[in-house]
């Protein structure tokens, strides 16, 4: 498995990019030359210099520092969201597929109701009710996305549970918990990893998209989408204020997509 990853250039590139981003996020306080929140109106719209490598924005804040800290926000929000989505999706999806019957029917109905609303509408409504704030954004995104994860995992388990080896483990006397935890879920692990790692990319895009719309973040918080949003006011005079965070979003999303899709290529031939 590990050998195959290192032999696949796409996976290596994706992995290196992910590690790079993670390092930046972890070392943000060391790497950033300035306080990302420090406002200094007299220094606004400075061109790049040795003091401010990427210049300053409309409030005189160091763009490089803000971008470096933005990594923290993007990853720091996307990964908890993904974690909760994965937990909810795996538990409910597995239980639904395994138990079947009325539980599964009700779960499917709820999923279908949720899927009838586009996530953007759900998030807009929830942020409207709950108010701005990072925590509220996380809750809103989880609330709008969980059914997709449940549905996908449920359909994986449905396929897996009819395979012969599951029947075989019933024959030797395994109970449901043993079959689910020791056989079905470990076998689904590779496909789930692929789904989740591509999920990170779409969640990062989603967070940036929502903060670009002004949902979830105040303007002081150095999140890439929020920076895009702030930068669009001076799009013509200072286009670079939009280009930098845009490139970061592109870089991060492609890192996770590259890695996720390479994983799919690595893992799928064995599935057949």
């Amino acid at each position: 498995m590990l050998k195959k990853i290192f032999r696949n250039p796409q996976a290596v590139i994706g992995l290196v990019m992910i590690l790079f981003i993670t390092l930046i996020a972890l070392l943000a306080s060391v790497l950033a030359p300035h306080d990302p929140m420090a406002v200094n109106i007299s220094m606004k719209f400075l061109s790049p210099s040795s003091e401010y490598p990427l210049g300053t924005d409309q409030l005189g804040r160091c763009v490089l520092s803000r971008i470096i800290y933005g990594t923290r926000y993007s990853l720091g929000i996307a990964i908890p969201i993904l974690f909760f989505l994965a937990v909810i999706g795996t538990t409910l999806g597995t239980l639904g597929a395994w138990l079947g019957g009325w539980f599964d029917r009700r779960l499917t109905i709820i999923c279908n109701i949720f899927m009838a609303f586009p996530p953007l509408v759900v998030v807009l409504a929830l942020i409207g009710v709950l108010g701005q704030g990072i925590l509220n954004l996380i809750v809103a995104i989880i609330f709008s996305m969980w059914v997709w994860f449940v549905k996908v995992i449920r359909s994986y388990v449905l396929i897996e549970k009819n395979k012969d080896y599951v029947v075989a483990s019933e024959i030797v006397g395994c109970n449901s918990a043993q079959i689910l935890l020791r056989h079905i879920l470990p076998n689904l692990f590779p496909v789930m990893i692929v789904y989740f790692s591509t999920g990170v990319a779409s969640i990062i895009l989603m967070i940036s998209g929502y903060s670009f719309l002004g949902l979830g973040f105040g303007t002081d918080i150095p999140e890439w989408g929020a920076m895009l949003n702030a930068g669009k006011q001076c799009l013509y005079s200072k286009p670079m204020l939009i280009v930098y965070p845009g490139l970061c979003i592109l870089f991060t999303a492609s890192a996770f997509n590259l890695f996720g899709e390479a994983l799919r290529d690595i893992l799928s031939p064995e599935e057949v």
Partner: peptide, 17 residues
């Protein structure tokens, strides 16, 4: 199952995890 009643399945290639 397994202890007193056992079963051998049709297709050995798919019957193992």
């Amino acid at each position: 199952l397994g202890t007193r009643l056992a079963m051998i399945m049709q297709n050995p290639m798919t019957a193992f995890d």
